[in-house]
Nucleic acid binder design. Sequence first.
DNA 1: AGTGCGGCCTGTCCGC
DNA 2: TGCGGACAGGCCGCAC
Length: 271
Amino acid sequence: MPELPEVETTRAGIVPHVVGRRVAQVVVRNRNLRWPIPTTLARQLTGQTVNSIRRRGKYLIIDTEAGHALIHLGMSGSLRIVTADEAVKKHDHVDLVLDDGRALRFHDPRRFGCLLWTRKDPLSHDLLASLGPEPLGVEFSGDYLHQKSRGRRSAVKGFIMDSHIVVGVGNIYASEALFRAGIHPKRAAGRISRQRYQALAHSIVEVLTEAIEQGGTTLRDFVNSEGNPGYFQQTLNVYGRESEACPQCGHAIMNIVLGQRSTYYCAQCQT
DNA sequence: AGTGCGGCCTGTCCGC
DNA sequence: TGCGGACAGGCCGCAC
């Protein structure tokens, strides 16, 4: 579910309520996420003050003196600030109860997300160490994409969705960025010019930035930390718009499956 | 090393 | 109304 803009929206929403607070209690109702929630987490996190909350790719990092909680929202996860009396719903797997009585509540129907604990530098954790650069950071550019793509014969859409190439570009924004850059999603990554990669890098930055400004995309169930949807879906040009008219040329938007993921594009504008 | 899948889960929707 | 199957915003781990 959540791509980078949704994770960033979540982070920004929980920071004012969580940073500076002490974790009074950790309530784990179901530890069977993608990886089991470590039994050490509750013991080591309880009593700790949250110093900061960072994002690396689609991971959230909750920093404390004793260690760091790593959270991934997977396909269907969300984090909300809840009041002490708010009823626990199905799939509310974990509460980090804060010292003001409220709680950070982790909800994840499909349980593709995770909640891990590490005492070392979280950026060197196995899951984070090999991640590619942040698309909104200084290392990311068209030149970088062009250089990394040489010799690759697989489709450019999968290439930009590979978190070891660049983090945070999921299925929706991959289709949207390729549309904006005029690149066909099936084109071999290694056979795209430096100039076109510059357009693509620009489109990725643009689409992610705009999505963050609009609070992310809600197609079915994304909610921010206050339980509200995002508004970027109104801005989507191709995603979910099969058979609709291309906003640029009027040609019908196509929907194909690429790498087991549904992919939307305009056959006229994208080559 | 790069590529292509299977698999992890539940919920929803669609056709019969 | 019920049921089977496809599909859904992610991504690791494995075979080749």
